[in-house]
Design a protein around this nucleic acid. Structure first.
Length: 365
DNA sequence: AAACTGCCCAACCGCATATCT
DNA sequence: GAGATATGCGGTTGGGCAGTT
């Protein structure tokens, strides 16, 4: 026979721990030491599962835990370790004294992973497409545009959960094998676009640039511009990003120029409200962008196909400077203390790994 | 001030592996 | 060695605080 069950499910308290429970658990472990989690609740007089006791002790009550925010040095270490270890949080946490796997995991998911996810949207599981979506917040603040109210749905905040019904797949202890081809292709497209958009690694991206990245299938057909059925409506977010607020009557283009906003009669708007009304009169972004009368002489049209094709050359990894430019953006912090720092160069060097593969592993892990 | 939302993080769930009988 | 549980781990959830309108 094997062991007895971990704990009875009946009569077990769940949810937040009270200070009293914490005290009981701490006192018990200080007297009896860690371990024997199964018998601990009963012996200590806690109505908790042993598993829950263990978690509470490890993640919160242990005396050797380090309190406070993750330091830039710790963040750098987490990034580097994650590049080589993947989501092995326990292993990563073991390199950061006083930090728990849960803490590292939460930090990654809430800080670091978001930066990455905002930068690259992976192809959907049902389409083998190279999808590079830039819907991230701009690297520099946009002083004239405040964050709109409105909470994103929980599901939208969970990029890794594509479908709750399929999320519980068979797990393996080893990190997933990176799909290097897709990653390199995607990043190459991204890099090419960024260089094209910015006219150089130093220039800033502008609002509409973040909406580059239609998804094309193997036949080069538009699959999705925003992850749904391929139709991107002119909701407030899109308009907010496209409008050139300094120049009513224009929207930014992805190729570095601007486009007049004209209605179906070719009349150009003269105010932001007119622009907005005009844009909303079109059923989709695509329908607007594909109208010839949007093209103003001397200005560039938003040619998504052109941009996408140009991004397929895969030259990213031959361009050290461009490589660093992109990664530095990925790794840049949101505050003054971290802006401008890039850890890219340190990826391969300090870990003695091939730099590109390390990055790709990190991107895909 | 109220309503609403973005975000953080503690805690839970279920699977994989280790350990025990 | 087989079967069963204990433990460890990573993914995910949801409560609650803080920020914005």
């Amino acid at each position: 026979m094997g062991r007895a069950p971990c704990c009875e499910k009946i009569g077990i308290k769940r949810g937040r721990w009270t200070a009293e429970e914490d005290q009981i658990l701490s006192n018990y472990i200080q007297s009896n030491g860690e371990g024997s989690w199964r018998s601990l609740p009963k012996n200590a007089g806690l109505k908790r599962c042993g598993k829950s006791c263990r978690l509470r002790w490890i993640n919160y009550l242990r005396s050797d835990l380090k309190r406070g925010n993750i330091t830039p040095e710790e963040e750098e270490l987490v990034v580097k370790l994650h590049a080589t270890m993947g989501n092995r949080w326990s292993l990563i946490a073991s390199h950061l004294p006083g930090r728990t796997d849960n803490e590292i995991k939460n930090y990654w998911n809430s800080h670091l992973s978001r930066k990455l996810h905002n930068f690259i949207r992976k192809p959907s599981i049902s389409h083998d497409v190279t999808a590079v979506i830039m819907n991230a917040p701009p690297p520099s603040p946009r002083p004239t545009t405040k964050r709109r109210p409105g909470r994103t749905s929980r599901s939208a905040m969970k990029p890794k959960t594509l479908n709750p019904k399929i999320r519980k797949t068979k797990k393996t202890s080893a990190p997933p094998e990176p799909n290097v081809d897709v990653a390199v292709k995607a990043v190459a497209e991204e890099e090419t676009l960024m260089m094209e958009l910015s006219g150089g690694a130093e220039a800033e991206l502008r609002p509409c640039d973040y909406y580059y990245g239609d998804c094309y299938d193997n036949n080069n057909n538009l699959v999705s511009i925003n992850g749904d059925n391929g139709v991107l409506s002119f909701d407030d977010d899109i308009i907010d990003l496209l409008l050139d607020e300094s120049e009513p009557g224009h929207v930014f283009t992805s190729c570095g120029g601007e486009v007049d906003i004209r209605d179906s009669e070719g009349t150009r708007g003269t105010s932001n409200q007119e622009n907005l009304d005009c844009l909303q009169s079109y059923p989709s972004v695509e329908s607007f962008l594909n109208l010839d009368n949007q093209v103003n002489d001397g200005d560039e049209f938003i040619d998504w196909d052109c941009v996408c094709e140009q991004g397929n050359d895969g030259n990213l990894w031959n361009e050290k400077e461009g490589h660093d430019s992109m990664v530095s953006w990925l790794l840049d912090g949101d505050d003054e203390t971290t802006i401008g720092k890039s850890n890219c160069d340190k990826f391969g060097e300090s870990l003695d790994l091939d730099e590109d593969n390390a990055l790709v592993a990190w991107l895909l892990s």
